[in-house]
Structures are given as C-alpha cells and as structure tokens.
C-alpha cells in the first residue's frame, strides 16, 4: 500500500467515524467538535486530490467561521446532554430512515455513473490560479449571480437583527 492509499483510508475512516459520532453523541458541544474533525478529514481528501485552495477554504469558512457560530449558539443556550429530550418522536425516526435511504440511492447512482478513476496528487483544477481563471471567464455569470445572492442574505441578516433592537 502506498502512502497516498494509507492516507486515503485513514481520512475516510476519520470522516465517516466523525460523521457518525456527530449523530450519536448526546452532548451538542461534542457533536460540533466531531463535525469539525469531519471537515478536517474532508479537507485532507481535497489535498490528496491536489485541490489545496478548496481544502484551505473549507477549513477557513466551515471549520473556522461557521462552526464557531454553531458553538456560540450552543454555548449561549447552554445546551447539554440533559436538555436533550430522552425519546424523540417515532415519525422522526421513520423520516430520517427514508431520507437517508434516498440519499444513499442518489450516491450509489452517482458512483455508478462516474468513470471510476480518480486523479491523485496531480491535476491543477483545484489550484487557485486555475480556479480563479475559470470562475472569471467560463462561469462569470453564475459567479456574479451567487454574489447577488450573498448580498441579499447579508441585507436580510442586518434587517432581522435590527428588528429586535
């Protein structure tokens, strides 16, 4: 087994194990910490695919900013293992099972469609120069549209927080 393969298996186990622990662990703060571990494992996968920019942006934005906000909310509301309801509704269980199975179906279909080979450590599609050029030439319209979306989300956040004051 090569080093890359070893790393791949290690990161995959970390990602799947972390994701499972997010769901299983009863303390919300622990759940968030496991989610951060999962993000790190996924960033590791990006690096294996030589998409360094995606990897670091994943860490800065998701693990570094969004999860901090999650932690904020959980800590301020003082959610603990004891505040969790002991038995959740039966329908929640059924709904979760159906949704999970559907997602599984989509994933299996997607994997069946894919060519089956993955470029490890080569390819420059995830490097910042390539990505920037692609975004500002081939995909400039969707890119600008998404920036409008961001702007409206920002204004929405400001409006909502103003109302309470």
């Amino acid at each position: 087994m090569s080093v890359t393969q070893l790393l791949f298996w290690f990161l995959s186990f970390l990602a799947i194990g972390g994701a499972l622990m997010v769901v299983i662990s009863r303390n919300p703060v622990h759940s968030i910490l496991f989610l951060i571990i999962t993000f790190f494992a996924i960033s590791g996968h990006y690096i294996l695919l030589n998409a360094q920019f995606l990897a670091i942006v994943n860490i800065i934005v998701y693990a570094g900013a969004i999860m901090v906000l999650f932690l904020f909310v959980v800590m301020l509301m003082n959610l603990n293992a004891d505040t969790e309801p002991p038995h959740k509704s039966k329908y929640l269980l059924y709904g979760g099972t159906i949704a999970g199975a559907s997602l599984m179906l989509v994933l299996v279909a997607a994997i069946k469609q894919s060519s089956g080979t993955i470029e490890f450590k080569t390819g420059n599609i995830g490097l910042i120069n390539t990505l920037g050029k692609t975004l500002f030439t081939d995909y400039v319209f969707p890119f600008e549209i998404s920036s409008v979306l961001f702007l409206s989300a920002m204004i929405g956040a400001v409006v909502i927080s103003k109302k309470e004051a």
């Binding site: 951060i36 360094q52 920019f53 670091i56 800065i60 901090v68």
Partner: peptide, 21 residues
C-alpha cells in the same frame, strides 16, 4: 505550499477553538 498565506489564515481561525473550548 501553493496556498501560502491562506494556510496561516486557516490555522489562525482554528486558534479560536482553543479559547472557546
């Protein structure tokens, strides 16, 4: 590394967790 200074940003944004946890 290719991303250089962004790496510093990534690590710095991790620094928050030490304090928060």
């Amino acid at each position: 590394i290719n991303i250089g200074i962004l790496y510093v940003f990534g690590v710095v944004s991790m620094g928050v967790y030490g304090i928060m946890i």
